[in-house]
Each structure stands twice: as C-alpha cells, then as structure tokens.
Nucleic acid binder design. Structure first.
Lengths: 222, 222, 222, 222
DNA sequence: AATGAATGAGGCTTCATTCAT
DNA sequence: AATGAATGAAGCCTCATTCAT
C-alpha cells in the first residue's frame, strides 16, 4: 500500500490515504521533513535509515510502516519540491506580462524557494547524479526538461520583442541563470546579510545590466 | 608508506615515492585517473574500491599497495586539480593588468579547467558536502578561501577604479561567477555546440554587459 | 483465547468458541482456507501474515483477533485434514472386508483426499520437515504413526491369508504406497485427463498386478 | 566474478576458476557441502547464511567471497545432483538393452543416488516449490522435463515390445515410479535394515509383478 | 606487485507480533 | 472486529580493509 508511481505529469502522484484522518499523513510528512534535513546535511547515501528513525524517536524498521524504502522517502522530498516549483513557474508565465517582467519574477521564484525548500534543493544538487541512475527517478529528468522549456521560451520571447540582446544563446543563458540560483543553496543561510529577496534583486541587476560600468563593449558574434 | 599530509600551502603535499622508478608513479597516476572517472560518474561513496580495481584489472585488495585508503585516492584527485587551478589564478593576477582584464582571464581559466579536470570538478561539486566532514579534507576549505580572496580582491579593485559598478556586493558576485562556471560541469560535454572558450566568452558578455538591451534600468541601493 | 492443545486423540482439539454465533466460526474457517491456499502455493515460511491478511482484505494485525499466531493457522489446516483422513481410514477398516478389499478402499480414500484437501496435503509434503521441529506439531508424528499402523496391519493380514505375496516388507510397502499417493498432489490438477478416481484405479492395477506382462519373474529372497 | 549462469544444457555451467590451484575450488565445494546438509535438515529458507558460515568457521559476510548469494549456493547443490543424475540415466539408455532391463537399471540408479545425494534430493523435494518461482531456477524444470522424457520413452518402448502391459498410462506410471523413489529420501537412513540396493530390488519386484498373489485380476479400460 | 581469503562493522529490509484506540 | 503505529529480532548482503602467501 501507499505505492507511489510516476503519474503522467512531470512528478509522481502523491500518496492518497483515503482513510486517513489527516494525522496519518501528518506523521508521514513529518518523517519526510526529518529525513530531508539529514539527506541535505549528510547526503542521501551517507544518511542511514537508522539515523532517520533515531531522529523520529522510533526504530529503523518502523520506518517501513510508512515507506517502502529509503528511496521512497527521498522521492517524496524531491517531488514535493518540484511540484511546487513548477506550479509557481506556470503561474508566473500565465500572467502574460512582458518577458522581462516574467523572467524577473521567475528569478524571484527561484530564490524564493531557497528557504522553504532548502533541504530538497540541496539534495537535488548533491545527489542528483546518484539518484538519476535509478529508473524510478526518471521523472526528475522530465521535470528538468519542462522547467528548461519554460525558461527558454521566455528568453526567446524577450529577444523577439527586443528586450533581450539577440546575441546570447537562450539555452546557455537559461543554464547559467538556473545554476546560479540553485547553487546558492550551498552557502545561503537565512539570517545573513541578505534575505532571498535581496539576493534575487542583486542577481537581477547583474543579470540584466551587467557588471561593467560605462559603454557596453562586449560583442557576441552569435 | 606514502602518507599524505597537508603542507603549508593550500593543498596537501604530493606523494613522495623514493623508490619511484618513474613507472611506479605512472601506475599510481593511472589508477587515480581511473578512480576519478568512477567517482565523477557514480559519486565517491557509491564507487566501491572493487569497481576501481576491476577497472584496473586487479583485485580490490591490491589497490592497497598503492594507496592507504579510498580517501587517499580522492584526496589525490582533488588536490591535483586545486594545485593546478590556484597556480593559474596566481599567474593571471601577477600579470598586473587592469581588474577587468584579469577577471576576464580568470573566467577563461575557470572554464578552461572544465575539460582537463572534468572528473575532479564533478567530484568536488557532488561530494564536497560529504568529504568536508573529514578532518583530512580541511585543506579543501582552505583552498576555497584562498580562491575567494583572489577573486574578491579583483572585484573590489575593479570597483575602486570605476570599471565595475559599485552597487554590487563583491563576495556575492564572486560566488555567482564561481557557481556558474563550475556547475557547468554538469552539462558541458566536449564536442557540443560550444567549446569551453566559447562558453567563457558568452559568459563574459552577459556578466559584464547584462542580458538587457537599451538603457540600464536597474538600480542597486548598495 | 482460542488456545489449541493436543487432545488425547491423534490430532489436537478443535477451537472452542463459546461466543460462536456461527458466523464468527465461519469467518475463521474462511481465513484458514485462504491461508491454506497461500501456504500451499508459496510454502509456510514464505507466506507472510500480511499476505494472508491482504487476501482477506484486512490488516495483518487484525488476524490476531482470530488466531494466536501464524502457526496456529497452519495447525488448523493440517489437523483438519488429518482428522478427516483418519476417520475415513477407520471406517474402511471397520467394514471387516478382506484385506485386499480394504487396502483398495484405502488407496481410493487416499486419492480421494487429493482434491478436497489439496492445500493441506501440499503443506504437509513441503513443510513437514520444517514444522516437525516445533513441539506443538508433535501430534503430526503421532498421527503419522497411527496411519502407518492401520496400513501395515492390513498388509500383514493380506499376507497371512495369502492375498499378498509374502516376500515383500509390509512397512516398506506401506511407505511406497503412501508416498505415491501423496506426492501426486504435486502434479495432480482437477480437470486433467484423469480424475482422482481414475488415478486410484490406475494405481491399484499396478500395485496389485505389476507393470510386467507374462510370467512373474522377480523373486524376493527375504 | 565467478558468476554462474544457466548454460544451454539442462543445468547451469559450473564455475571455472582458471587460476585456481584446485584448492580454491575445493574450499568452495566444501562450503557447498556444508550448506547442503543444513538446507536438507532445516529447509532452504530456514537456514541462515550465518548458520552456514558458523558451520565453516567463518563470518557470514565471508561467504560472499565465494558465492554471490544464498541462492547461488543452493543452485550449486541442485545442479551438481541433476548433472550427475542425468548423465547416469543417459548412460543406462545407451546400453541399448531391452526396456525392462533399462528401466530396472534406472530404478537402481535412482535409489543409488539416495545416499550420495541425500541432501540435494531432500532440498529438491522440500524446496522445489519455493525455488521454482525464481527465474534463475528455470533450469530445474527443464531438467525435470528431460528426465521425464527419458523414462516415458522407455516405458512406451516396453509396451511396444510387449514387456509392459499396454493398459497403463506411461506418463502416470513414470510419475509414480519417480515419486516413490525420491520421496524415500524422507525416511531412508543408511545403516537401516535395507541398503539402497535392497530398496531398489524390493521396489522392482512390486513394480513389475505387483503385490497380489495368484491370477491377475485387475483390468484397465485403457 | 598482486592474490585470495577473511574480517568486522554496518546497511537496508522483512516480518511476526503487540497494543492503544 | 479492525486499524495503524510501533517493536525487536533477525535476515541477506556490502564493503573498506587486512594479511599471509
């Protein structure tokens, strides 16, 4: 029971505990949260199920009342994040604003996930390479593709209407933006000099107007 | 036997094989290279010593004639890369060119390591979090600090002479540049549309002049 | 609650459910039947209580309202069969027919249990070895001994009156007959070429008159 | 290494340890023998790898230096037996004697394996049902089919030349003979009243000439 | 320089059973 | 009569490492 499979969408279907009074699901979610923290801190492989269970104050075997396997847990960590992220991107796109506005918003969304989804993002950064080899995580690649398409579409639209310079590669540019945002999870700590909002604005500045002062001098051949 | 300790510099001393007939050292280097590929592909933890030995056509126990431990191997992978990188940065700085030129060069150096040090960079990206918990890898943090200092110095110098806008945070900006370069190792494949040189130029363009066309509109409060 | 102990007879006493509304006992019997099928198909050890519960549409813990333990369930499967079998043998013996007639009838009885007690016989064949090590299943050996005595008595009687050749070992012969009948459960499937009646007649033919044609040529020394 | 796969023949290929001095293989064979005894006594599932290792005086993990898995061990137990058995049957058939002589010899061969292959036969009897569900043991079914074909061919030949009565079913008769022989492993103990040779002769007597004295009276309808 | 056998610690998982609700 | 959570013991297997040869 509680078997989780990949649905037709980018991420797998969430569990459905029809008989649950809500507290069953809460317990499960709590365990996922604890596990996510450990995965983020130590890495998926280096985190033992015993550590997760210890953190929850139960025995390791008891975890299997809630999850099929250790992988099921990390699956839930990642898919919860991706579901949320993609939903937000879609909403931003649907405002039908001009590309630059949409792109700014998407940058803000990205940085905005840094805090609530810190653990999941960290896991995705560090353990992506390991997890991707398992068939059950194929949906990660699918989700990644969908996200890429959303970004690239906006960049191209911006170039078409003259908001973005035409001599940069859309796909490459997307990757640079994406990487810059997510990798920040490695050093960003809430309560520091800048909050994620500040980070986003800082990045938007550099991204749109560049680091240099004065006349623009670089020239892409295309 | 072949004990490796951290030297006074950023990275630990290289092996000293007194008996080194030349070929002994070559054999060792070869093994390190094989291991690096596996570490990059599967992750440090997920790579077993048996897999490394298999790749070399020997038994796993035989690896211990060459290395104290699995960690010694990854240590060699990482320190070789860091030694090379820092040496190049230092050389760039020592040209005493203006900050913008130096920074451009450093970006080029960064992208330039993507190919020759692909495996090492991948390991550093993916397994940093895990490795850092072991005392023996403290030098990684030291090396990272030294690199940060080199970059931040240049950025500040550029702001001082008016080449870089003053309303961006030097440290934050460094991290964004750094991340963007290294994370490219995840998707960069030699032989694709762009080589690492092209990548560097593309990035330099966006970095200095921004994505937007027309008048600069963003304004940092500082 | 529902403690089952070995009675003075060959097999343990059946459950006594004082509250038995009739439907309670039916529910219990139904569960035993489901379990028997699983035990037969997968083996006692390989069948989990969860599988039994799944089959019944309840949770595994709920089974413990009906049975003390997994062993109690298999106990009921086996003793139900043995009770029935021994009762039938006794009835056959009590007809006081001549030994050959009685023996024929006992062969028919044996094959006749193949269908109604298929699951129980299968379990007995496959898991006897495992179950016998537990004290609670001592009665299995007792029942086996009683059955052996019934058969051997008939064979010896047949030899005494000259119906059976005197140069065969009664105990050995019994075992061969017994084995041949029960092991058939491994391949017998209702609806095939022969029903159990046909099987019995086939076996009686070979058993009494042998496979060979013409003069009898074998000669036992003992 | 030492991967064992099913060859094209009835049973899987034996290991090939080219570099072994013979003692490596001996160690392995010794471990297989110890395991076979335990499997026979307690059943495959009920035997833990720890028990096998204990018996050999090593740690359970050390077993995995010699075998991939617990199943690999039982695989070796069974395939060694089947290889031997089938080879003997083939040799008997190739003497080109008359069917009755060949069949007698095959009965003797069967009983003759009871002692040297007692453990393997016991495992096959008790754990067949469990093991057959795993793909890797498909060859068991194949071997069984080959054996059946050898027997049925002889029985039919005997009927054709008039040595065996024509009104018995060859396949059914084979199964009865087979079962009677193998199931004897459950109660046969070396050193008892009869050795396996005596057992074989006893069975041949009953099999060919029947249990009854006087005129043959049974009549199969065909 | 390498082999082959073994260690020892630990990992993930299974499962019969218990018990409060 | 059943649920849902948990226990506790045990099971199979992995793997870095050691060491005699």
């Amino acid at each position: 029971m509680t078997t989780r499979k990949n649905s037709g969408t980018a991420t797998p279907a969430k569990r459905q505990r029809t008989t649950s009074t809500g507290s069953a699901s809460e317990r499960r979610d709590h365990l996922v949260k604890l596990a996510a923290e450990l995965f983020a801190r130590k890495g998926f492989q280096a985190t033992t199920v015993r550590e997760i269970a210890d953190e929850a104050g139960i025995l390791s075997g008891s975890l299997y009342h809630h999850f099929d396997s250790k992988e099921t847990i990390v699956d839930e960590v990642l898919s919860t994040f991706l579901d949320d992220l993609i939903a937000r991107y879609r909403a931003a796109v649907e405002t039908s604003s001009d590309p630059r506005t949409v792109l700014s918003e998407m940058v803000r969304i990205g940085f905005g996930t840094l805090e609530p989804h810190r653990a999941a993002i960290t896991v995705m950064q560090n353990d992506w390479n390991y997890l991707r080899q398992f068939e059950r995580f194929n949906y990660l690649v699918k989700a990644e593709d969908e996200v890429e398409q959303i970004w690239v579409t906006q960049i191209k639209a911006g170039q078409a209407v003259g908001q973005f310079r035409a001599d940069v590669d859309p796909k490459l540019t997307y990757r640079m933006i994406r990487d810059t945002i997510w990798v920040a999870v490695r050093w960003f700590r809430p309560g520091g000099r800048l909050n994620t909002g500040g980070l986003a604005e800082h990045y938007i500045t550099v991204l749109f107007d560049g680091l240099a002062t004065g006349e623009r001098t670089t020239q892409r051949k295309g």
